[in-house]
């Protein structure tokens, strides 16, 4: 299954699929715990962050591009409270997979990728909508900022 995924997600998907049930949830929790802190310029200016209402829990994101066009480098930033570990986990997966890649790679990421990680069985499809919502917003912001 993973060989059809973009390289950015293949390794993460393999890691999740190697685990079952509660262990898979534990891995998501590890992602949640590892979500990078917001850099100061965002921590002090929350108005620069975009809310993601598709998520049940409050999450905000911001993007930056270094350069322009498809070859620009995409930078992703997220903020979600500790009492929303699932949402933090989703954000951390997107950060690990996509932060630092080219804008082209990010916007070519198929929408279906969030369903390919083996998470539906442990968090439910409905909750995964939140992750798809984040990805869609990231792609839209990057298109605008990279002038695509």
């Amino acid at each position: 299954m993973s060989d059809v995924l973009p390289e950015a997600f293949a390794e993460i998907a393999d890691d999740f699929h190697a685990l079952t049930g509660r262990d898979r949830l534990q891995l998501l929790l590890e992602f949640a715990n590892g979500l990078p802190e917001l850099p100061e310029r965002y921590a002090e200016h929350p108005e620069l962050l975009e809310p993601v209402p598709e998520c049940q829990s409050p999450i905000f994101l911001a993007t930056e591009v270094e350069g322009s066009g498809r070859d620009a480098i995409a930078r992703l930033f997220f903020s979600a409270p500790p009492e929303a570990p699932t949402t933090r986990g989703f954000a951390a997966i997107l950060a690990e997979a996509l932060d630092g890649r080219t804008v082209g790679e990010v916007i070519d990421t198929p929408e279906t990728v969030t369903g390919e990680l083996g998470l539906a069985e442990v968090v439910s499809l409905l909750r995964l909508n939140g992750m798809a919502g984040m990805l869609a917003r990231i792609k839209r912001q990057l298109r605008e900022k990279a002038g695509l």
């Binding site: 949830l25 829990s57 009492e83 929303a84 570990p85 699932t86 986990g89 909750r127």
Partner: peptide, 9 residues
């Protein structure tokens, strides 16, 4: 919970 991972924390 609403958040399915909270129990694990």
């Amino acid at each position: 919970d609403e958040d399915v991972l909270l129990y694990e924390t």
